[in-house]
Nucleic acid binder design. Structure first.
Lengths: 337, 337
DNA sequence: GAGCTTGATGAAACCAGTTACATATGTCAA
DNA sequence: TTGACATATGTAACTGGTTTCATCAAGCTC
């Protein structure tokens, strides 16, 4: 193409170093990997050569021998929700204990994008995958099956699932929130949730609510998972002629948005309306009023998933599914009806 | 799927496929990379063999030839702040246009951890790096210099910096916020900010405030960058005998925390106290009241950084620094004093 | 029918490391 | 003095792909 590239950019390799140091490539390799077996003198000679030539070993060449690339991928719907951010932080921390790096790819909650991203992760050599939810495109399944790529499902517990799941029971989590409201006497409850399309966690939660024994009114409102989305929902609910007595949000981000939206309309929580969330983000304890929420153990989930995947990769033995438990955290956003 | 027998795990390679299809390795390689030049009959034969042997080409072996691993790393202080999440989302989106994957590593705002993470990114073959701020440890600088690794600084603009910077003027951003408050007549302003240790962006903002011509009182309060941290700051400021008339937060996350903290003390914004933030997160437009903030163009920054890095990698030509501009967005959290 | 081009394929070199095995030297006990 | 053994290093065969170049047959021109 353009032959006016200023630098030919000739990265030096093992052979160059060996020649410069007057030793064999094997010795240089030893200096790099088990320096103790090399005689001190030789070691220094080689290290000098390495420094002089600014030699940096090629990761690819290493990988080709060990068969290991030392990184895995995680596919999450978005980074723009603290719940995933917290999960990924824990995941990354624990993976690095296993000398594994993490590539984060976002799917924008689309199974199609997920399959694409998975493909490119595989292409660049990911040794394993952490994914969200049990529902995935056929292309995705084919991909990981062909490559027999260790893949762990998170945010969802289902021991029957072909891929091991490490997560919680979404239906039960939502029911915990509903039960709390029901116990407080609420009979007209609005559920605010994110998009159900391509999101089996939300669907499972909604199903959980529907099958829960409750003879009151349960309406649902779908919105974007963001503070703005929550605020939109609040505006809608606030304008209703017969306003529900409680709002159950399937995500704390949405809940905070709803809370702000209600506040903008001067609707007092919990006096005029009760609210429960699901996630229990740290933020939920500082909102006004502090938000009652169902705690999802995402940090723990990140750690367990990291351990399980690392183990799978090294032992070639798929792990068992693991259930993590959710828990209602009662604060001040709910009140007897 | 989960058979108890430890799988022999004999991944098939090009040679296996070639033998099975009765062709040479070169032909198999062609089928993979330029299928059009292969005779249709042969093509099918090979593809059948590939399918039967569940052949998946080795990324490492590819990389060794092309010299390209097709991924880069990004080092950010945390994922637990929407401002970085937004930046990374844009970065990742744009990088994928260049067929590059992104490895996100968090430094927990420690230069030491940053250097470690950079090392492991390099070890696994990152082709370039996106980093935050211009201040880094000597170990880090040595590392990227030795490897002559394309590295772009973000969130900070400084054309003098040895590494190209793509970002904004942090001092100016903070000054924009201060100027607004000063113009509204505020003379007693509290600045709430995150840790200054290992954070040159915050330091630059603080310096910007200090050198701004202003003869009123300017106090500072350092806290954690989180809603909780902001709420803590609000509690402190609310209890002060002589309360400032305005609070300037160097981060919107902190600002929302402060807002909630003030609300918990029944201090009305903006009637009793004005507030300005820096970041302009989407959330800031739905808070009560909507938060006046200085917009930081982080999505744009992500895109520019991605283009610049991709270009650097392919052309071996370091890009020029690029300044992106910040802008005050006036909402309802500020009022004339 | 010779000469030339085109299309399809294969042999082998090559990328940059690791590693099994061979070799050379030195130490020590028998 | 010699055999046993440890230490230090080198040679060359790997790893799993890509790529250059050579080969060969078929199609076309003159």
């Amino acid at each position: 193409m353009t032959q006016k590239t200023p630098e030919p950019k000739k990265r030096s390799n093992l052979r160059d170093v060996a020649k410069a140091a007057g030793v064999s490539v094997a010795t240089v390799s030893r200096v790099l990997n088990e320096p103790t077996v090399v005689k001190k003198e030789t070691l220094e000679k080689v290290q000098t050569a390495i420094a002089e030539l600014k030699f940096v070993p090629s990761a690819a060449a290493r990988a080709i021998n060990s068969g290991r690339t030392r990184f895995v991928g995680a596919l999450v719907p978005t980074l723009d929700n603290a719940i995933f951010a917290r999960f990924l932080a824990a995941l990354e921390r624990k993976l690095s204990d296993h000398q594994l790096s993490l590539i984060v790819a976002t799917t924008e909650a689309s199974l199609e994008i997920e399959a694409e991203k998975a493909k490119s992760l595989l292409d660049i050599g990911a040794e394993g995958l952490i994914i969200t939810g049990i529902t995935h495109s056929p292309a995705f399944h084919e991909l990981i099956e062909r490559a027999s790529l260790p893949t762990i499902v998170t945010s969802f517990f289902n021991p029957e699932n072909p891929l091991p799941t490490i997560g919680y029971d979404n239906a039960a989590a939502a029911q915990l929130a509903l039960q709390h409201l029901v116990e407080l006497g609420h009979r007209d409850i609005a559920v605010v949730h994110g998009p159900v399309n391509d999101n089996d966690r939300t669907r499972a939660r909604l199903t959980g609510l529907k099958v829960f024994p409750f003879d009151g009114k349960l309406s649902t409102f779908e919105t974007e998972i963001s503070h703005q989305g929550g605020a939109d929902a609040a505006k809608h609910l606030g304008n209703l002629s017969s306003r529900p007595t409680a709002i159950l949000c399937l995500s704390d981000v949405v809940a905070l948005g709803v809370l702000l939206g209600l506040q903008a309309q001067n609707i007092i929580v919990p006096d005029q309306i009760s609210m429960v969330g699901v996630d229990d983000l740290p933020t939920s304890s500082v909102t006004v009023p502090p938000l009652t929420s169902v705690h999802l153990p995402v940090s723990q989930m990140g750690e367990r998933a990291a351990d399980a995947l690392a183990n799978w990769i090294t032992t070639h033995q798929a792990p068992k599914s693991e259930e993590l438990f959710t828990q209602l955290v009662v604060r001040n956003s709910t009140k007897r009806c």
